[in-house]
Each structure stands twice: as structure tokens, then as C-alpha cells.
């Protein structure tokens, strides 16, 4: 595929190119993630949910009734869009959001205490189980929050809010010496 525009990450000027010293609580920022929004057609909500769950190559993040963000790291945005369009043809509307969203991956033993400073949802491990995802307010910014591991959460935010959310997360994590950097995985 040919790129006409230069692709820049909104945090390019705020993070070092080389990974620095990593603290136990770390904010990992992947540079490229494929994200598409999936919106079920009327009456197709259950079949789209089942189709998304069955497709192993993308993780579905709940954002509202019949609406999800499908997220995939190994795939390119084009292949994710194409695969889901084939899988969910005639049942859902699929739109690429990859350039419009930024993913933050927060992990470490204090991750819930960090998030609790901005998010008013119960994040107790028994309540917010691995795989759960919701749209939620973090401070003044609306994000999609997902629990992706034992002590790992992902926040997906609109690109234009990425710098503000990054600043907020740094302040929220300062007490725990939160480190931040671009993902080494790309």
C-alpha cells in the first residue's frame, strides 16, 4: 500500500524514541494499532456479537448496544477492515478508525489505584473481569477502557485528546513512579 501522507503519532514529540528505564507500573504506547468501529444493523446485534467473538484475530471492545471497536495489533487496518467486512457482510457497518484513535496500555501492580484517580467505575478484579470493556469518563475525557490482563488495561482515546490524556495519566501515576514509552513491539 502506498502512503501519501506522513504518519505521525500525536505523542511523537513527548516521548523518547528509545525506551527508557521501565518502572513496575508502566504506560506502553503502541505506535500502530488497527481499530475499526463495528455497528450492527437493526436486529442483527446478537449475530454480530457472536461473529466478533468467533473471529479470533481481533478483540471486540464494547462501546454501546450493538456497537464495538474491533482492535488488532498484528493486522493492518486494511486487512482488519477487509476481514470483518467479509465476515459481517449485510449485518454490520464497519468503518476504519485507526488514524483517529490512540491506544494506551497501562500495566503494573498499582494500575487500579492509578486509574481510580480518574475513573469512577468499580475496577475490582472480581467485578471488572479480564475481557470486560466499557466507555467511561477518565477525568474530563471519554475513553474506551478494557481489561486485557491480570493487571493490564487498555485505554482507547480520540486522537485529538491523546496528549491531554497522556498528561492526565502521568499525573495520576506520579505517586507510583509510572514510566511511559512507545511499545517496542511497534
Amino acid at each position: 500500500m502506498s502512503r501519501t501522507y506522513i504518519s505521525r503519532h500525536p505523542l511523537d514529540d513527548l516521548l523518547p524514541l528509545e525506551p527508557g528505564i521501565r518502572a513496575v507500573d508502566h504506560l506502553d504506547i503502541p505506535r500502530v494499532v488497527a481499530i475499526v468501529s463495528v455497528m450492527a444493523m437493526d436486529g442483527e446485534e446478537a449475530s454480530v456479537a457472536a461473529g466478533l467473538a468467533a473471529s479470533g484475530d481481533a478483540s471486540a471492545r464494547f462501546s454501546g448496544p450493538g456497537e464495538w471497536l474491533a482492535v488488532s495489533q498484528p493486522q493492518t487496518a486494511e486487512s482488519l477492515h477487509r476481514n470483518l467486512s467479509l465476515l459481517l457482510a449485510e449485518t454490520a457497518y464497519i468503518v476504519d478508525q485507526s488514524d483517529g484513535r490512540v491506544v494506551f496500555r497501562l500495566s503494573g501492580p498499582n494500575v487500579r489505584r492509578i486509574l481510580a484517580k480518574g475513573i469512577a467505575t468499580d475496577l475490582h478484579p472480581a467485578i471488572f473481569e479480564t475481557g470486560t470493556s466499557v466507555n467511561v469518563l477518565c477525568g474530563h475525557i471519554s475513553v474506551n477502557l478494557a481489561r486485557t490482563g491480570e493487571n493490564e488495561f487498555e485505554l482507547i482515546v480520540m486522537r485529538s485528546f491523546a496528549v491531554a490524556l497522556f498528561d492526565d495519566l502521568k499525573v495520576m501515576g506520579r505517586e507510583f513512579d509510572l514510566s511511559a514509552g512507545f511499545s517496542v513491539r511497534g
Binding site: 454501546g64 467505575t121 466499557v134 469518563l137
Partner: peptide
């Protein structure tokens, strides 16, 4: 009914 208990600010 879709998201659970949330503060009024949302």
C-alpha cells in the same frame, strides 16, 4: 442499563 453504575458527570 448498558454500562452499569456511573457518576452523573458522564
Amino acid at each position: 442499563p448498558h454500562c452499569g453504575v456511573r457518576p452523573k458527570e458522564e
